[in-house]
Amino acid sequence: MTLRNLPIGSSGRVLSVGGEKVLRHRLLEMGITPRTVIKVRKAAPLGDPVELLLRGYVLTLRLDDAEKITVEEVAAE
């Protein structure tokens, strides 16, 4: 599944990061690397972008970009 489909409030472990060159690079350097656990905190009032919690900070990402990240759901800590 992708990060886009991960329900709000649940967490996922990153399996792979896709996307075009610039986007992908940016995602990687912001800490979305394989095996990172990401929690989907909430969505913006209009449903997009979403708010993620990873590596102790909050990152926002558009759904179209979140779709490029495949994850497996994990139980929240």
Binding site: E20, V22, L23, R26, L27, M30, P49, E51, Y57, V58, L59, T60, L61, R62, D65
Partner: peptide
């Protein structure tokens, strides 16, 4: 051309 990706931190 593509806008810069919106990957933004919420401090």
């Amino acid at each position: 051309g593509a806008p810069v990706p919106f990957v933004m931190e919420l401090p």
